[in-house]
């Protein structure tokens, strides 16, 4: 994937508008702004950028200067957000990961939604598109190299069909990158995002008082704090940055060490029992983790984030310990 020449400016300086007072500045649109990550990002950017939020959910405690469009991104009405004022960038993270939702809903919201908002960017001359994907698209596997680079194949759907549409979104963004050289497209693939209010599988897992581990397996894991992801998204707005990037937090740690640090003693389950057992528990709504998530407890899916560090000057601010403990904070 292509890489641009970049001044090493970092997040804060990202595209600060020089428009004179009184004139309406070019805005930054954020899809999925009402989620935990979206709210953190809005808080980080709202002083510096004119923000336009798009989400079907209401934004509780929204900053006053944020223009909110409470609409499903698949609806025609979502186009209003692009029509009203000039936008210089779109940060697209309106991507749903709810294992209990049907595959059709997932596909429609994620893939159709992405296609539509990226089309608006072409139509309304948005010069920068940042799509939030995930390092999970590579998929955990015993064959993986310890540090997967951006050109590794996206194998996750081979064993876990629910992530198929997340891969579809990632691939669509990549083809968009090639089809529209006039637009700076950035695809970010952060490692497991964790944080105080984050409700995704890795954060929920780390909050369990007695989490499962698979007997005899102890893969290396990578975590990134939600606010460091916001810094990465801001850094992706830096003019000149384009391409696909892994985003890594403060480093790697064995799963067992992470759980010891959190004082959550694991229950060791043999891997051949764990899958059928979790399948039953999940079917009866006793467990919230779909069985294929067990792959993450068995094999590594760790990535190399050095390209983004080099091209966008990104550096996470949280240490590994702070990042780990953030899941417990209220």
């Amino acid at each position: 994937m292509g890489r641009g020449k970049t001044a090493k400016t970092g997040g804060e300086a990202a595209g600060r508008s020089e428009a004179a007072a009184g004139e309406v500045r070019d805005g930054v649109a954020i899809t999925g702004v009402s989620g935990n990550l979206g709210r953190s990002l809005a808080k980080l950017l709202h002083g510096q950028e004119r923000l336009v939020g798009i989400d079907r959910r209401p934004f509780r405690g929204k900053p006053k200067d944020l223009e909110m469009h409470e609409v499903d991104i698949r609806r025609n009405k979502a186009e209003n957000a692009f029509r009203k004022g000039r936008l210089k960038a779109l940060i697209h993270m309106g991507i749903m990961h709810d294992p209990r939702m049907s595959a059709e809903d997932h596909h429609s919201f994620n893939v159709v939604g992405t296609t539509r908002v990226l089309d608006y960017c072409v139509r309304y001359g948005v010069k920068k598109v940042v799509v939030l994907s995930s390092a999970n698209v590579y998929g955990p596997s015993p064959d993986n190299s310890n540090f997967l680079t951006e050109d590794s194949p996206l194998m996750a759907s081979q064993r876990f069909s629910d992530v198929r549409d997340l891969i579809a979104v990632d691939m669509y963004a990549q083809s968009f990158f090639y089809r529209h050289p006039e637009i700076e497209t950035v695809v970010l693939r952060p490692v497991h995002i964790v944080g105080p209010h984050i409700k995704n599988a890795p954060s929920n897992y780390l909050r369990l008082p007695r989490p499962w581990m698979l007997l005899g397996f102890d893969p290396m894991i990578q975590l990134i704090h939600v606010e460091d992801v916001c810094l990465a998204l801001a850094a992706a707005l830096t003019p000149g940055v384009r391409g696909v990037y892994n985003v890594v937090g403060p480093g790697e740690v064995p799963l067992s060490t992470a759980l010891r640090e959190l004082s959550h003693p694991p229950v060791l389950v043999p891997h051949f029992l764990a899958r059928p057992l979790l399948r039953q528990l999940y079917a009866f709504h006793i467990a919230g983790f779909p069985p294929p998530e067990l792959d993450h407890l068995q094999w590594g899916c760790t990535v190399d984030g050095s390209r983004f560090v080099q091209d966008a000057g990104f550096a996470p601010r949280r240490t590994l310990k702070e990042t780990l403990h953030s899941v417990l904070a209220e």
Binding site: P142, S145, N146, L214, G216, F217, P254, G300
Partner: peptide
């Protein structure tokens, strides 16, 4: 490449510095 698929062995090997033989790992 089948070593990381084995319980215990995979963990002991990794902690003792043994790495799956992919060219990428070797290069790094």
């Amino acid at each position: 490449k089948w070593v990381p698929a084995l319980p215990f062995v995979s963990t002991i090997f990794a902690r003792a510095g043994q790495v799956v033989g992919t060219p990428e790992n070797c290069r790094r």
